[in-house]
């Protein structure tokens, strides 16, 4: 929950940058105008959330999803946002997937390396082999658990 009223504001530096990027170079934006746009953006979030929530409720769902937000944009007559939003979501999803693939690959590389070194060692120290294998299995399990936890966090944010 929001502790202080200013928690419901968006960061001014980022808002200012977005405004500057939207306008031609050298346009002077008054401080009052910047503050007003920032407040308008917070109101926009609340309005969009409430619209999206209506769609979720109609469908008897508790969790807001991408379709609800897109439907809200249409309802608010911001159809012009739909195309850029869909594109951005696709890029975002690819990015998320990419992240997972990279970590998977890294894990596999590590395992291969471990397996390789194990083979070398086993030639020299056959007696210790069992203990080592046990350790490694435990390590892998812990790693897999962490990854699963991280993946869960990615998937859904609720509490």
């Amino acid at each position: 929950m929001a502790e202080r009223p200013e928690d419901l504001n968006l960061p001014n530096a980022v808002i200012t940058r977005i405004i500057k990027e939207a306008l031609p170079d050298g346009v002077n934006v008054s401080k009052e105008a910047r503050r007003a746009i920032s407040q308008a953006a917070s109101v926009f979030v609340l309005y969009a959330t409430s619209c999206a929530n209506n769609f979720a409720m109609k469908a008897k769902r508790k969790t807001l999803n991408a379709g609800d937000v897109l439907a809200a944009m249409e309802e608010m007559e911001f159809e012009r946002f739909l195309e850029p939003l869909r594109e951005a979501l696709e890029v975002y999803k690819k990015g998320q997937k990419g992240k997972k693939e990279v970590s998977e690959q890294r894990r596999r590389d590590k395992e291969e390396k471990k397996a390789g070194s194990e083979r070398d060692k086993s030639r020299e120290e056959e007696e210790e082999e069992e203990d080592e294998e046990e350790d490694e299995r435990m390590e892998e399990e812990a790693e897999a658990e962490n990854e699963a936890a991280a993946a869960d966090e990615d998937e859904e944010v609720d509490n």
Binding site: I18, A22, A41, L64, N65, L70, L85, A88, Y92, E156
Partner: peptide, 19 residues
């Protein structure tokens, strides 16, 4: 509750709105 995609879309929409 809000899923991650909905959160992302709302954030992006807010940026488009500001512009």
């Amino acid at each position: 509750s809000i899923n991650q995609d909905a959160l992302f879309l709302t954030t992006k929409a807010t940026e488009l709105f500001v512009q």
